[in-house]
């Protein structure tokens, strides 16, 4: 009994370390006939930490917050933390052609639709 309790408290910090608290960035999602466009606010993200993954129909955005200047905090209104958010994407994304860019703290991800999923006019043949 006492053994299990000790075990669970040991595990708790390890799990917290594996998945630290993260902020869900605000996003806009747009679509036209060629692509889906995801725009996410990740101010202060460290450029080389930005991780965009597309796996199993899920788009996953992650970024670490770059370390800011040091000092004694006088007011802390904003919680500074890493960013993490995931979306289920519709079928038909050409995962090879996904492109992402980071400008002024905004992450932009272009997800082109595979040509098979674009609207296509089907010719009706007469026999």
């Amino acid at each position: 009994m006492s053994n299990t309790i000790a075990k669970s408290t040991e595990q708790a910090p390890a799990r917290a370390e594996a998945q630290p608290l993260a902020i869900r960035p605000r996003v806009d999602v747009f679509e036209n006939e060629h692509e889906l466009l995801v725009v996410a606010d990740v101010p202060g993200a460290a450029k080389d930490s930005i991780d965009v993954r597309f796996e199993g129909g899920e788009l996953r955005l992650e970024a670490r917050r770059a370390a800011g200047p040091q000092g004694q905090p006088l007011a802390e209104e904003a919680r500074l933390a890493d960013y993490r958010r995931a979306f289920a994407m519709p079928e038909g994304i050409d995962s090879e052609k996904i492109e992402a860019s980071f400008t002024n703290g905004v992450l932009t991800v272009h997800l082109p639709k595979s040509s098979a999923k674009r609207p296509r006019k089907i010719d009706v043949r007469t026999t």
Binding site: G44, G68, G71, L74, A78, G105
Partner: peptide, 16 residues
């Protein structure tokens, strides 16, 4: 977020 960095005050804000 306001920091006291000794000789300076630093005021920071996220403006994505």
């Amino acid at each position: 977020n306001v920091l006291d960095a000794g000789a300076n005050l630093l005021v920071m804000a996220d403006v994505p």
